[in-house]
Design a protein around this nucleic acid. Sequence first.
DNA 1: ACATTATTTAGACTACCATCTAATTAAAGT
DNA 2: ACTTTAATTAGATGGTAGTCTAAATAATGT
Lengths: 87, 87
Amino acid sequence: MKEQQSIFTAISDPHRRVILRLLKQGELSVSELAKHFDFSGATLSHHLSVLKSAALVRVRKDKQKRIYTLNTSVVEELLLVVNQLFK
Amino acid sequence: MKEQQSIFTAISDPHRRVILRLLKQGELSVSELAKHFDFSGATLSHHLSVLKSAALVRVRKDKQKRIYTLNTSVVEELLLVVNQLFK
DNA sequence: ACATTATTTAGACTACCATCTAATTAAAGT
DNA sequence: ACTTTAATTAGATGGTAGTCTAAATAATGT
């Protein structure tokens, strides 16, 4: 898997890890996610695009909103990779 | 654990992950590690200091050499944190 | 003492990253 | 049509990270 680096880059930022934890509890729109952060919507959009590039999250449209969800299969893959890093 | 960020930063670099995988197989001196990489000794020293700051590795002296080893307790901690990120 | 080997530290450079504001796209409601 | 809401994209900026060469530190051997 050649995009391994993109996953490690994605989880290296603390704000993105918070996003992942929030999505772990259920899907959220961008504006719902925004309530949890101080930075601008543009920055949030940037973080989401990094997570999307790593395929850690998926997005779908619902009217004007874009709903983000955890991509559990890639998450499982990450857990495997990290475990194999050491075990 | 307040140094969680330093651990994620440490494993975000691919060269440092190679170092960790090498040390997983047994302790190594800096010059032994150097054989596996193209970059300068100064750069290797920098990577080792990042890993050391995150407490992922430990170092001891043996004559002129410095022997690096995996710090398995912090490694276990990392595995736990990553797992809790998603599960 | 001096030279050699092993490693780190200092300082510089480039590239990338997180962030911002402003502009843009897109869908919905009036 | 126009306005509002939702989100992304463009472009700029400051800071940090990875890398290098050169210099410094430290231990060994001659």
